[in-house]
Amino acid sequence: MTGTEVQRRERRGRHGAWVGAASLGIVLLAAGCASGHPAAPPRAAPPPSPERRAEAARYLAIAVAGNRRLEIDFDRLAGPDRGRLAAAQADLRDAADTERLFDRRLLALTFPPQTEAVARRLATVNEARAELTTTAADVTTLPLLRQYEARLTAANVPVEDAVTTIRSQLGLPPPSTS
C-alpha cells in the first residue's frame, strides 16, 4: 500500500463522510423549512471547556506521534522498500507496533462516556488493522505481500470513521489528507 494510495483512500473516506453530512443537513433543512415556522438563527458553538481542550491536546499528542511514525513506514514501503521483501516486512512490523502503541496510549486516556465509547471502538478496529498488518508482514514473497494491499486499505475505513468521530467529539477538525 503506497502513501499515495493511503492518501487517496483517506480523501475518499472523508469525501463520503462529507457527502453524508451534507445530505443529512439538506434533509434537516428541508424538514425545518416545511414546518411553517421561521428558522431560528444559527447559534455559535460554545467555546470548548478547559477540560475538553486538555482532552483534545492529550489525544493529539498520541495521534500526531503515531501518524508521523506510520507516515515514515508507509512512505518507505511505497518507495525504496517496495521491491525489497525484508525491508517491506520490517516496515509493516513497525507499522503494526505503532498501531498497538497508539491503542495502549489511547485507552490510557480519560474521556467523557460518549467519547470513551468511540475511543474503545477505535482501539478495537485499529487492533484488527494491526493484526492484518502483522499477517501481511509474515508473507514470504513480494507478490503475496501485494495481495494484502487492498485488504489493508479496506481496514483503514473503520479506523478513519472512528478517528473522524472522536476528533469531532473533542472539537478538533477532521484529519488532514496531506
Rank of each mutant, 00 (worst) to 15 (best):
V157Y: 01
R8P: 02
V118Q: 00
V19H: 02
A154Q: 07
A56G: 11
T153D: 12
T124K: 06
L24G: 07
L60V: 07
G3I: 08
L28S: 11
E5G: 14
L152D: 01
A61H: 11
L101W: 08
T98K: 05
D103H: 03
R76Q: 05
R82S: 10
T124F: 03
G83Q: 15
P175E: 08
Q114D: 14
A22Y: 04
G79M: 11
D97A: 13
L122K: 07
F102H: 10
E5H: 10
R121K: 08
L144D: 15
A44L: 10
L24Q: 10
A155L: 06
T164I: 12
T133P: 13
T133R: 09
T124D: 10
A57W: 06
A119P: 00
Q89S: 14
T134R: 12
A150K: 08
A155I: 04
L70Q: 13
P46L: 13
H37L: 15
E131N: 12
V27W: 05
R68P: 01
R93T: 08
G36E: 11
R167Q: 09
A150V: 07
E149R: 01
V139F: 05
L122V: 01
I62A: 05
A45N: 12
A65E: 15
V157M: 05
F74L: 15
E51V: 13
G20R: 08
A117L: 09
R129S: 12
A90Y: 00
A21M: 05
P48I: 01
Q89E: 07
R76Y: 13
T164K: 10
L132Q: 11
R52E: 12
P41C: 03
D94H: 14
A22D: 01
Q169E: 11
A119Q: 03
V27M: 11
P50W: 04
R76W: 15
A88T: 12
N126F: 00
D94V: 13
R167W: 04
R151P: 00
